[in-house]
Nucleic acid binder design. Structure first.
Lengths: 344, 344
DNA sequence: TTGTACGCGTTATCAG
DNA sequence: CTGATAACGCGTACAA
């Protein structure tokens, strides 16, 4: 077969189908299909002819057709509250990497902390016939739960460990982490522990963290002072405002645990600006393992959370189910770790 | 038609097809199809019957089948160098939002700054028959270019303004931005301007920024001192190292322009650690508009880049092409802006 | 090892 | 406005 097609310049006009490859290789489409998806079931000779034909005519398989025909799917859907929040980035990265290594693709969307939007997105993904779903949120509208149940798709939730998971869960304990950090601060001798978190109304994680803080105070025998607790919107500015509100008057908080987003960083900068010694005047602890927190002056005590690993494991357990290597509900509790640094 | 199906709890067993809806509504599948995708072409009466049937039996359309049948696609593919880098997050957000508002879904992948990986991902996306592609990188393997050309899919590149775009470009001028900032520093009276960027070998943007720096020095009549130029890997640590190498001995750089990633922040923290006054001992300028840079002490001079807008516009021009509202190559040059702050 | 017949679930086309 | 019929491009199931 003369093959000057290497650098060929066919017009983007007509779609090339499997039958074109079949014709060029002198076999049936079925043989082409096999040569491409299970080369071992085809003779050496034929395999080479098919490969040659494929690259000669520049054939690109149509997975839509393949998936429709086999009633399978090689796409997984992911819904996070926000694509802009860098905290979710490592999880996304972990998921994408593991999926791709296994020949799956990832579809992403953000639901902006809204259950209604999440429901719409779940519907959209089910219409795409995703093989599985990863949801960051752990509370869902009844209709969403119902759609998922009826579709029978495997689901992984990974925002926090939940009591009644839809299906599988891969996460860490937000409550446990908040409790551990609070106890850590108490053990360091702080007595008036401020606590700042994101709005609990729309955020399961915040609720759990607040619960952990409260539990730790009880265990440590410290009083719960509502004046020391704040809910703030995300952002650096909120952190700055919070530290002022909680630590301006002498005799208020002697340390503040910022249980969300980048608030601790905003607070630290505000202290620098005002010349407040950290931890001299007020100790600061954060919740997330931004690389940044290890470089600031002073470096900031925080929790190391398994964000990347959550992504990887989520993808893995999902694939295990999709490919039939596992069944039934599953809860994977990944570890967190306290990183003690200069700010406390 | 008796309809007690509202809260029904069918087993996730059998797939519900359009014909099931058709039967329940007493019409043909074609009418169901029309009632769902162009309701105006169907009688009021029939439309309601179909809608009722759909929600009664819990029908979820199969887009794979629809796309296959109509030879269309409602999925767009996006390839970024890294999903973990928060700089890309706003762009992703912008793309996703505009796409979703128009009924399209987004598939994402990261190619880790490798052309070979990008090529593989492009192939994978073409197999999924994406309706369009958004690529952050602007240099591609010959095979990648060829595949794209033959597939005839619309493509938007958005890493930097390119000379010979594959198709459409939505970006800002990395060269122009670097030039503008360098001139800005010269105008402020700095004379020994250090320049730090990411490795130029694998990064188009870095090359362009370096070009801008050089051009600005010429224009300002300042000598180009190779000892003041550094290429560093991404990260806070690299910034810290760079500032020490360029500004430790008195008489070296009097200001440093960090043209990439978070290096400027790492440098600033290192200065704090060493007690170096910024800008007293050394001025610092950054390239990206991390919110953080407006909150540090001192706040950091930087460029405001239209990351979110790049995402939105990329999606828009792509949709315009996909839906036939435009043809031909297109270059959209979005503006950047210098934010002068305390660090210079 | 290879091929044939049929179906995957939808939409385009054209007739009524 | 509605319906019958034929694709869309491929994989499953079986037969050769």
């Amino acid at each position: 077969m003369p093959d000057d097609a290497a650098g060929e310049s066919a017009a983007p006009g007509r779609t090339i189908r499997m039958r074109d490859v079949a014709r060029a290789a002198g076999v049936s489409t079925m043989t082409v299909s096999r040569a491409l998806s299970s080369p071992e079931k085809v003779s050496e000779e034929v395999r080479r002819r098919v490969e040659a034909a494929v690259s000669a005519i520049g054939y690109v398989p149509n997975r839509l057709a393949g998936n429709l025909s086999s009633s399978r799917s090689d796409v997984v859907g992911l819904i996070v509250p926000s694509l802009e929040n860098s905290l979710f980035s490592s999880t996304i990265q972990g998921i994408a990497t593991v999926l791709r290594r296994n020949g799956y693709q990832l579809m992403v969307a953000d639901c902006g902390y809204s259950q209604a939007d999440e429901e719409a997105l779940i519907a959209a993904f089910l219409e795409q016939r995703v093989a599985g779903l990863v949801l960051h949120n752990t509370s869902h509208s009844p209709r969403a739960r119902e759609m998922i149940r009826r579709a029978g798709v495997p689901v992984v939730e990974n925002g926090t460990l939940v009591d009644d998971p839809l299906d599988m869960v891969v996460s860490y304990s937000n409550e446990g982490a908040a409790r551990a950090m609070t106890l850590h601060l108490a053990r360091l001798g702080y007595r008036r522990l401020g606590f700042v978190c994101l709005p609990t109304a729309t955020n399961d994680r915040s609720v759990a963290r607040q619960r952990g803080y409260r539990a730790a105070l009880r265990e440590a025998g410290l009083p719960l002072d509502p004046a020391l607790m704040l809910e703030m919107p995300p952002g650096l500015g909120a952190g700055a405002e919070a530290v002022v509100r909680l630590a301006e008057e002498p005799g208020r908080a002697d340390a503040i645990f910022f249980a969300g987003d980048v608030m601790a960083i905003g607070a630290l900068f505000e202290c620098q600006r005002r010349g407040w010694a950290v931890p001299g005047r007020v100790g600061i602890a954060a919740f997330d393992d931004f690389e940044l927190l290890g470089h600031t002056v002073p470096t900031v005590t925080t929790l190391r959370l398994p964000r990347l690993e959550i992504g990887r494991r989520s993808a893995q357990v999902l694939l295990d189910r999709i490919q039939g290597r596992s069944t039934g509900k599953l809860v994977v509790d990944l570890k967190f770790e306290i990183i003690h640094r200069e700010s406390t």
